[in-house]
Design a protein around this nucleic acid. Structure first.
Lengths: 202, 202
DNA sequence: TGCATTATTTACCGGTCGTTCAGTTAGTAT
DNA sequence: ATACTAACTGAACGACCGGTAAATAATGCA
């Protein structure tokens, strides 16, 4: 906890924009135009800097993407490490993880949005896809455990169930906006309700 | 029925590849690398032709995308025109349309895959997004009607319900493969079951 | 055979891309 | 003042992009 949160800022040399601001500007542009269609020149323009200045903060365009994807994946993987993911029945653990995933989606919206658009055309993207599949595998195991427990329907393959579940959850990035009328907690409740009980009136 | 299905092939002049083959090759590449990252040269290479030859069949890269998106949107809009979309209770009509959407997703998989990745950076993409939103609006109306009927839960906004529903359904393009072990009909049954009854054991 | 028609190729254009490099500017520390 | 350091600039690079023009090749038909 001592050095992980340590971001003291060196205080030497000419002041300028910081790495995080550069990254967020790039990510915003990546989302707006797509990664490939976003040029370094556009990012530089939005920062009010020259194209070469961007390379002072990140050595390559792909490294900016990599840093963004790491933010998203770190958040999701973090949920699996929390106590709630290992406490109680399989159904309780599954609910905890799904709710945690919704929380990461909303709190790190731009990064996760980028992650969900990655298709694996470069090494950076393939590594991100690998970690994402790993996360999916953990949740699939939770679904299978909940099914063995008798708390989740057993007529559909757990892998299909998990994919449909994440199809629903991940779609949040397509339309959720933090400044909208709906709070993140309320959204999580609605998503969990739809996922568990479905569309039909009870 | 007379001229719509009429694709007789003129039978005159030098033989060559036909438009549909060019389009399908382009769409496959678009999906694999992304639209922007796919160059006309790559499409030409896969066709075994020169870059200029591709321009003989389609006047621009964007028109290939437009033709593909039209295939997807035409299919979805067609579901709303079928008799089943206007027959019976709102719940029955909704089920019919959802099942129809799954059918189009699986039967026109590459085209719909492309449609679901469109972000609206060009005129062609913006027009496609407009038609897609129109389709969504029709389904939202069906959900609202089913809620008024009492057959669909009333504790969640119909717009949120519809978005989550299509989040689940649309995710099919991310993992469904026609040559896999699962038939399209079986998949449709599972998706409908998850959407209507949810995850929980009954 | 020759003509119309369709398909395709070679060569090229202007422009944009990600990236690099040598040098300059604006601050802090002594 | 002077030294040091991080932040930044302008110009250029080779590669590749979407698209075009004009010539050529291959077919059916008269």
């Amino acid at each position: 906890m001592s050095e992980l949160n340590a971001v003291p800022a060196p205080k030497k040399g000419r002041p300028g924009v910081d790495r995080q601001y550069v990254l967020d500007t790039a990510v915003t542009a990546f989302i707006e135009f797509g990664y490939d269609a976003t040029s370094m020149g556009m990012i530089a323009e939005r920062l009010g800097l020259s194209k070469a200045a961007v390379y002072h903060h990140y050595p390559a365009k792909a490294e900016m993407l990599g840093a963004a994807l790491d933010e998203a994946l770190g958040g999701l993987e973090g949920v699996l490490l929390e106590a709630g993911a290992h406490t109680g029945s399989a159904e309780e653990r599954l609910s905890y993880v799904l709710r945690g995933a919704v929380h990461i989606l909303t709190s790190r919206l731009p990064y996760v949005t980028l992650l969900l658009r990655v298709r694996g055309n470069t090494d950076v993207e393939r590594e991100a896809l690998r970690r994402r599949r790993e996360f999916d595998r953990s949740v699939t195991a939770l679904v299978a455990a909940a099914r063995d427990e008798g708390s989740v329907r057993s007529d559909i393959d757990p892998r299909v169930v998990t994919r449909l579940l994440f199809g629903m959850i991940n779609s949040i990035v397509e339309w959720y906006r933090p400044d909208g009328p709906e709070s993140a907690d309320q959204l999580a409740n609605e998503v969990l309700a739809m996922a568990l009980e479905g569309l039909s009136a009870t």
